[in-house]
């Protein structure tokens, strides 16, 4: 075992302790919170009223409720759709296509595109939510500039297509990350391999599909891992845009969790929701980490 100690640290016990201490502290806080959530997911703890003090153990009741009551399953479905279309499809594909298209390009076009997608990423969620809300509303920019001049009646996108608006907004907001990651990944593909593929007679599409994508597969999996986790638990932009509505159209798990815990005050049930989310994200992560492994 001795050999496994990082050579930077080996033989320097005080340094080892000094470095390990904050990590240990951090870990214990993490374990404490997770333990807290798991523990109280078996209770009927509420944030106000009698149950905030005199809570009872309820066993698996909260978990059974996840599957028997309206709410969780519906919210899970919305979250899956939201994550699949805005992250797995939207951000990944747009980020990848931009990275491929702008590859090796210089000058104004590239700068313009990079700045605009970075702006989306850097803009605070609340500001972005306001912009999208203002653009997509009945009297907003899209209706004024596109729909009405074409002679159609104005559409209230925020009402009729809330989930679509939220998906597009999140795609726009998150594509920069995928773009940056894929740009770096493409840089790592040697030029001569691309040229060899050219000499081998591949079309650009074949080159991308049969050579480049298999080579950057670990990067794709890494990207998927990150953005799936982020999107699956994403809260502020959607909450600020729609508050989960209209109805439950955009009520993703993060919002459902928030409402259950702090609007309806049922913290025990909320804890069970968060534990369920943890398990789902954990399962997805294992799936992606498998993909990450290089083929034998």
């Amino acid at each position: 075992m001795r050999k496994k100690i990082n050579p930077w640290l080996a033989g320097n016990i005080p340094l080892l302790v000094a470095v390990a201490l904050p990590a240990a502290l951090f870990l214990s806080v993490l374990v404490y919170f997770a333990g807290w959530a798991i523990t109280f997911s078996f209770t009927d703890l509420e944030t106000i009223g009698r149950k905030s003090v005199n809570w009872d153990w309820v066993g698996l009741k909260n978990y059974i409720r996840l599957f028997t009551r309206q709410g969780f399953l519906q919210s899970l479905w919305v979250t899956v759709i939201f994550t699949f279309f805005s992250a797995v499809i939207g951000q990944t594909i747009i980020g990848f296509l931009l990275a491929v298209a702008l590859r090796g390009k210089r000058g104004l076009l590239k700068t313009t595109v990079e700045v605009s997608i970075m702006l989306g990423w850097l803009l605070p969620d609340i500001v972005a939510a306001f912009l999208w809300s203002a653009s997509a509303s009945q009297t907003g920019l899209i209706n004024r500039v596109i729909i009405e001049p074409l002679g159609f009646a104005p559409i209230n996108f925020m009402n009729d297509y809330a989930l679509v608006v939220v998906i597009i907004a999140n795609t726009w907001k998150g594509s920069a990350w995928s773009y940056l990651l894929f740009s770096a990944a493409l840089d790592a593909v040697p030029k001569e391999i691309i040229e060899a593929a050219k000499v081998d007679g591949t079309t650009p599409i074949q080159r991308l599909w049969k050579v480049v994508i298999p080579m950057i597969r670990p990067h794709i999996a890494t990207n998927m891992l990150f953005i799936t986790i982020w999107t699956f638990t994403y809260f502020p932009l959607i909450y600020a845009l729609t508050g989960g509505g209209p109805g439950n159209d955009t009520n993703v798990l993060a919002i459902f969790l928030y409402q259950t815990s702090f609007d309806v005050h049922r913290l025990g049930y909320g804890s069970a929701i968060s534990v369920a989310m943890l398990l789902i994200v954990g399962a997805l992560s294992i799936f992606y980490l498998r993909l990450l492994k290089e083929p034998k």
Binding site: E192, K198, M215, R217
Partner: peptide, 20 residues
Amino acid sequence: MPSPQRGIAMVFQSYALYPH
């Protein structure tokens, strides 16, 4: 004429093998 139709084959300095 595109490379593949020229009837050439190239051996690159870095070998340029497909790693996958």
